[in-house]
Design a protein around this nucleic acid. Structure first.
Length: 285
DNA sequence: AATTAGCCCTGATTGC
DNA sequence: TGCAATCAGGGCTAAT
């Protein structure tokens, strides 16, 4: 988490407020937030001051501010937030970066990067001819991308013996899907996450990818999934999709399709939730 | 080449 | 009450 819908909520909020804005001040706290920005904090701030934010873009869970021939790449990690603030507002806890910007209307506002668990980070990098920043070049297109090709992805998935959930979470195969929406898509598709990719048909995988798209689209419509105050939009508000989850976090509760108690299993060092009846484990062999 | 374990990190929760 | 163990887990790196 935040997964594609939550990152898209943030992207939209930022786009509405800072597109066309000029960056006037840049301040970072600590080394960790810029650990992927090799040249360091002074370089980051100096190169950004005076630049104009042309666009706020996203692929999968990566977000970036297009400032011309370069981009500020933002990854929220587990707990990162991009919050709008007014100059003079008190610093929130876990503030790692502060951008002072002046909007097209001449309004001075601040953008705060706040991150409790510090798995997130920022970097200023070059972009390729398509405008994709270097750190995002290896990330596959996500199901919201106009150039996303479900059949090509299904062809790739059905060639590999790896478990389907593992492949759904592999950001170089399809991006934007994390543990929550993987479980939700598998529940909708009535597939167990440990089904080997090469034991599924291409149409079944195309259907699964369609479910992944649909559940993330539904979540976006509710402002994303918020379990607690860590997952919020640029105004600090929570989303409401948690109440609509059918699988994730519902261990022991009745399946919303067949009433069978949902199971919780450990897979890839995390929890997986599924229905024992709708989503039978694959047979051995 | 593909896969997997380990690491990074804080705070809420659980257990003794 | 107090402290330690556990859990949440995305993405990168090193090892197999």
């Amino acid at each position: 988490m935040p997964e594609l819908p939550e990152v898209e909520v943030v992207r939209r909020g930022l786009a509405a407020h800072v597109t066309g804005a000029r960056i006037t001040d840049v301040e970072t706290h600590g080394a960790r937030v810029l650990r992927r920005h090799e040249p360091g904090a002074a370089d980051f701030a100096a190169r950004l001051r005076g630049r104009t934010i042309r666009e706020v873009a996203r692929r999968g869970k990566y977000l970036w501010l297009d400032v011309g021939d370069e981009a500020v790449v933002v990854h929220l990690g587990m707990s990162g937030q991009m919050l709008l603030a007014r100059p003079g507002d008190p610093d929130p806890r876990h503030l790692h970066a502060r951008f002072g910007v002046t909007t097209g209307e001449g309004d001075p506002i601040e953008v705060h990067f706040v991150d409790q668990r510090t798995f997130g980070g920022l970097a200023l990098t070059a972009v390729d001819q398509d405008g994709t920043p270097e750190p995002v070049a290896h990330i596959a297109r996500d199901p919201f991308d106009p150039l996303f090709d479900p059949l090509a992805v299904a062809r790739r998935i059905t060639k590999r013996p790896s478990a389907i959930k593992r492949q759904l979470l592999d950001q170089t195969i399809v991006s934007g899907i994390g543990n929550i929406y993987a479980d939700e898509a598998l529940w909708r598709a009535k597939l167990h996450g440990e089904r080997p990719g090469d034991r599924l048909t291409k149409p079944a995988v195309v259907r699964l990818l369609g479910h992944a798209h649909d559940v993330m689209s539904d979540a976006l419509g509710e402002g994303g999934t918020s379990f607690d105050s860590l997952y919020v939009n640029v105004n600090g508000e929570s989303g409401y999709f948690e109440r609509s989850l059918n699988a994730y976090g519902r261990g022991g509760q009745p399946c919303r399709r067949c009433d069978t108690p949902m199971r919780r299993e450990h897979f890839m060092n995390r929890s997986s939730f599924s229905c024992p009846r709708c989503q039978p484990r694959p047979r051995r062999g």
